Computed example of a mutant assay.
Amino acid sequence: MKIWSSNHTFSYSWESISQAAWRKYPNPMNPNVVGTDVLSRRVDDSGRLHTHRVITTAQWPFPDFVSRLIGFDKRCYVTEYSIIDPATKTMTLRSKNVTLASWMAVEETLIYQEHPDDANKTLLTQEAQIFGSSALGIPSYFEGLVVDGMSSNASKGREAMDWVCKKIMAEMQDLAAGAQQLGAAMGFSSDTQSSV
């Protein structure tokens, strides 16, 4: 077993980051993610949103010879459970691979929390545990390959979150500008629009 961990501070509020997490895929930084499907969603008595999703990817960090050896077709499925707690401003995502889990299991946890000193920032704590099967012959070698890929993918994931946040901000500005133009075309002044 190998453990990988990382911490990062986003220059966006927790509200922005938690919205961006739902719109993270597709994005140009992670073209291997080809789909996300929500299997269930509910709000508990404490007001926390629980979601179960399946994420489909088109690659796995095994060398081609290993993929051929075990008969793998390159399509992978990951199950993700998340809890968003608006009271504590915490979003926790736990994921694990379904595909090839008997050969190599990866369990990842991401926790997004409002920065304690700056409400305009969000802290990300990310950890993964990688379990290689002894059937692979040298599990630590393959676990090491996955750990190496985790660092690269984590960096791409942070870039993707930044990209989505900027995209959402641009959409909000476009929407506000469109509303102002519509209001002006209908004869409303900006004072009238803000009071509506």
Score class of each variant (00 low, 15 high):
residue 146 V to P: 02
residue 49 L to Q: 12
residue 7 N to D: 11
residue 172 M to N: 10
residue 154 A to L: 06
residue 10 F to C: 00
residue 61 P to A: 01
residue 189 S to T: 15
residue 2 K to A: 11
residue 156 K to C: 13
residue 121 K to S: 06
residue 118 D to M: 10
residue 13 S to M: 03
residue 118 D to E: 12
residue 128 A to P: 01
residue 129 Q to Y: 12
residue 13 S to W: 05
residue 95 S to Y: 00
residue 114 E to M: 05
residue 8 H to Y: 15
residue 2 K to Y: 07
residue 105 A to T: 15
residue 43 V to Y: 00
residue 105 A to N: 11
residue 134 S to H: 03
residue 36 T to K: 11
residue 27 N to W: 09
residue 35 G to Q: 12
residue 64 D to G: 13
residue 9 T to C: 09
residue 180 Q to T: 11
residue 163 W to C: 12
residue 160 A to G: 11
residue 192 T to Q: 15
residue 29 M to N: 14
residue 79 T to V: 11
residue 103 W to D: 00
residue 9 T to F: 06
residue 192 T to M: 12
residue 109 T to S: 09
residue 121 K to D: 03
residue 156 K to E: 07
residue 35 G to D: 10
residue 49 L to M: 09
residue 52 H to E: 09
residue 155 S to Y: 09
residue 180 Q to F: 09
residue 169 M to C: 13
residue 30 N to Q: 08
residue 6 S to N: 11
residue 13 S to T: 12
residue 32 N to C: 11
residue 173 Q to V: 13
residue 39 L to H: 14
residue 107 E to A: 08
residue 82 S to T: 10
residue 46 S to W: 00
residue 38 V to M: 08
residue 138 I to H: 12
residue 142 F to D: 04
residue 97 N to E: 01
residue 51 T to K: 01
residue 51 T to I: 06
residue 1 M to S: 04
residue 19 Q to W: 06
residue 92 T to G: 00
residue 32 N to V: 12
residue 23 R to P: 04
residue 139 P to I: 02
residue 80 E to Y: 03
residue 81 Y to V: 02
residue 17 I to A: 06
residue 181 Q to D: 05
residue 2 K to G: 14
residue 125 T to C: 08
residue 82 S to F: 05
residue 44 D to Q: 03
residue 129 Q to G: 14
residue 92 T to K: 14
residue 32 N to R: 01
residue 87 A to W: 02
residue 69 L to K: 15
residue 163 W to F: 14
residue 149 G to S: 09
residue 117 D to K: 11
residue 24 K to G: 05
residue 24 K to L: 06
residue 126 Q to Y: 02
residue 140 S to R: 15
residue 140 S to M: 07
residue 46 S to K: 05
residue 91 M to Y: 07
residue 152 S to K: 15
residue 47 G to W: 00
residue 55 I to S: 02
residue 140 S to C: 09
residue 174 D to I: 07
residue 142 F to H: 03
residue 164 V to A: 10
residue 181 Q to K: 15
residue 102 S to W: 03
residue 65 F to S: 04
residue 114 E to T: 00
residue 80 E to Q: 03
residue 18 S to C: 12
residue 192 T to K: 10
residue 143 E to V: 02
residue 57 T to F: 05
residue 178 G to M: 04
residue 20 A to C: 02
residue 89 K to L: 04
residue 107 E to K: 09
residue 60 W to S: 04
residue 67 S to C: 15
residue 14 W to S: 03
residue 60 W to C: 06
residue 192 T to C: 05
residue 71 G to K: 08
residue 40 S to D: 15
residue 71 G to F: 08
residue 104 M to D: 00
residue 102 S to A: 13
residue 64 D to L: 15
residue 174 D to K: 13
residue 154 A to H: 13
residue 185 A to K: 10
residue 149 G to N: 07
residue 139 P to V: 03
residue 193 Q to E: 13
residue 113 Q to D: 11
residue 56 T to C: 08
residue 70 I to Q: 08
residue 137 G to R: 07
residue 170 A to C: 14
residue 92 T to L: 06
